[in-house]
């Protein structure tokens, strides 16, 4: 189960970065975590069958489970959208410190 080891590495790195001060590092951490989540999803399809799920070219008997692949494809794109959004947040005020609110000219509600 080498992939499980990869998951462990990715989650370790992701969680470590998630607990940092810099928004950019948090984003990197989430990127690692989403990689890990995708690998776990793919593992759910049992990695013993690894043929491409194209029944006209690959024997369906050895083809991989296509459903996790569809899920992962969706997940990758969503993670991309979320990353982009967070990157937009990270540069407000050219300051990506997550422990201090960026100045926006508004007083904070008390």
């Amino acid at each position: 189960m080498i992939i499980a080891a990869s998951v462990a590495v990715l989650v370790t790195g992701g969680v470590y970065l998630l607990l940092q001060r810099s928004m950019v590092r948090v984003i990197f951490g989430l990127a690692l975590l989403s990689h890990a989540a995708n690998l776990i999803l793919l593992l759910a399809g049992v990695s013993a069958w690894r043929g491409e799920p194209l029944p006209d070219r690959v024997d369906p008997a050895v083809a991989t489970d296509p459903l996790p692949h569809a899920f992962v494809l969706t997940a990758i794109v969503i993670a991309f959208a979320v990353t982009v959004l967070m990157l937009g947040m990270a540069v407000i005020g050219h300051n990506d410190d997550t422990k201090r609110m960026p100045a926006t000219g508004e007083e904070r509600a008390t």
């Binding site: 189960m1 992939i3 499980a4 080891a5 998951v7 462990a8 590495v9 990715l10 989650v11 370790t12 790195g13 992701g14 969680v15 470590y16 607990l19 890990a36 690998l39 776990i40 593992l43 759910a44 399809g45 049992v46 990695s47 013993a48 069958w49 991989t64 489970d65 296509p66 459903l67």
Partner: peptide, 25 residues
């Protein structure tokens, strides 16, 4: 981070790859 990572890896190892291919596949 290390504890969470090990748990995730352990979970991935323990909970996947222990069945035949699914009917839906």
């Amino acid at each position: 981070a290390v504890v969470t990572g090990l748990s995730a890896g352990l979970g991935a190892f323990a909970l996947t790859g222990r069945r035949e291919r699914s009917d839906i596949a």
